[in-house]
Design a protein around this nucleic acid. Sequence first.
DNA 1: CTGAAAGCGCTTACAG
DNA 2: CTGAAAGCGCTTACAG
Lengths: 342, 342
Amino acid sequence: MQRSGRPTIKDVAKAAGVSPTTVSHALNGKGVVATETVARIEQVASDIGYRPSAIARGLQNSRLNLLALVIRPFHSLDTFLPEGVDYFLRLAGAASMTAMEHGYSLMIVDDPTRPGVPLSALAADAYIVTEPFEHDPVLTMLQQERIPFVTVGADPARRGQFITLDEGIEHQAGLMFRHLEAVGARRIALVTGTDRNDWNLSAHHLMEEWSDARGHAPLVLALPEAAGETVGDEVLDHFFSGDPAQHPDAIFCLTGRHAAGVTTAAIKRGIRVPEDLLVAGGSGAMQNRTSSPTVTTLDLHPEAVARTAVEAAVLLAEGRSVTLPASSVLATLNIRESTTRE
Amino acid sequence: MQRSGRPTIKDVAKAAGVSPTTVSHALNGKGVVATETVARIEQVASDIGYRPSAIARGLQNSRLNLLALVIRPFHSLDTFLPEGVDYFLRLAGAASMTAMEHGYSLMIVDDPTRPGVPLSALAADAYIVTEPFEHDPVLTMLQQERIPFVTVGADPARRGQFITLDEGIEHQAGLMFRHLEAVGARRIALVTGTDRNDWNLSAHHLMEEWSDARGHAPLVLALPEAAGETVGDEVLDHFFSGDPAQHPDAIFCLTGRHAAGVTTAAIKRGIRVPEDLLVAGGSGAMQNRTSSPTVTTLDLHPEAVARTAVEAAVLLAEGRSVTLPASSVLATLNIRESTTRE
DNA sequence: CTGAAAGCGCTTACAG
DNA sequence: CTGAAAGCGCTTACAG
């Protein structure tokens, strides 16, 4: 009923005095159609405002030219898009643009395994799932349904089983560890989030190796991502109680907002940053650029990640195979005041 | 070919020993089907992993349960999602969640009037267009194609012609003008963006009325949104040259990043904020919360705007009529250091 | 070079 | 209560 006024291919055929088949051929450049017939059909089509139905066309090959982006961490963040958490938003925006460039639209989909999700949420040609959890049910479902997908960050429990854009957390965190050591850190503490994703788990793992190699116990604390800046005191209480010989001289928080909170709390306690304590953040939050002192973070280049992931998803959607290089997008350091001593 | 393995309604019918019609009836609760037949069909369907095709279903009523969000200002911002510009991102995220709650997915679509856009970008059941430009071609096209849409902010040249969520810019800007006056401003200058949308144009208009009423010439400057913080010096040069009697004692920048730039530039020149000059921002950017001094901004409540807009779009998608109240979402003030004197 | 026919996976009158 | 038939708007062999 709805929009029933829209002209169909039949209307074009009638107006041009040809068959629907010929219209289809002409408009899609398939088959062989007389040049002037093509011209006439195109004229008529544009005159009556014909536009092919994406749905009808999609029914043929069950493809809609639609990609879906599933941002898993949204489920642990109390608000869908917490203020100042740039990473996922830059990712979503860039993904949407890249998709368009390739002739695809992009939907942002909440957890598609929830009962009662709209059918459309499962109608995408391919999915991009960022930071899946351990044994992520979304991946399991996608696999079962034979819907192609790319993962950004591995499912920690099923490493190597899916097509994954692995940002190389070892590289990323290692970059920061080395930087901290270079500016004088002897004992680095790590604050991760509590989501069981590759980012948190692998960084934790790397910290253990790092500490082992240096002959001391790893200093690690996991705190909810959603707590944001409020974790400052808890972090300091945790690391600065007990044996002073075990106190860290650098704290690396994977979550930018945690780093912001730690910096503020430290200063309030008279711990100078960076003189007494180095502080750094993982995925940078906006706060880290404007706080006083500004806080060193990693730049994970979400735009580049998005581009790579979307391009892989497009290939999958078109039934082609994809192999992603080990680390396609290398993180870089944004060195700021919180780790600059001189 | 693709995904050809997916079971169809025929497979269910065959396996359950009934006709496709009956399967359809049973699964959709239409018609009259024996209770036990329904049970059997449901069992079989879940056994073989049947899931109805959104596309095939969409072909019936040309509805996909898909909404599209068009964020117009993206075209004037140099990067798709400039850092710290929270407003549109919060809007997009909230819209996506609200859509899901109503059984819809949401795609983020770039300009759908560009040649060569994916067909899918035009396959949405209804559109939400935020901050349309004057004579916006997107609205013209949507109207021509008879695709239902809601506008967030009016098309300044076609006010009242479309279904619009009018946030009441008069109210919003007025709120800030009154606040500035209450804390001592005698002469308020306004910095708008250069996009010809309702937000910029109406605020300008309001400023003229406001100045008229007070018997002096309006101080207004329009600068590109995309310039961000870099506009600081230009703004100060502009307003603080010439007759000192005409210098403003408050500057209200509609764009939060402009306000951030003005604050920094003022302090660098030895103009104290807020003592000598009050500064405020329109749509708050993250920077304004963490800068020193922190900057007073409006909170436009994008989440609430998104909710209202999506709910209206859903009604339109379902062929129902909608009337939006004049101002559904009222802005509030976030008063911070830049306008706090005592 | 052009078109009749079948089919994509569903739904919806309608007949039994 | 159940199912055969037509149709949604297109595309794609295939025949002429």
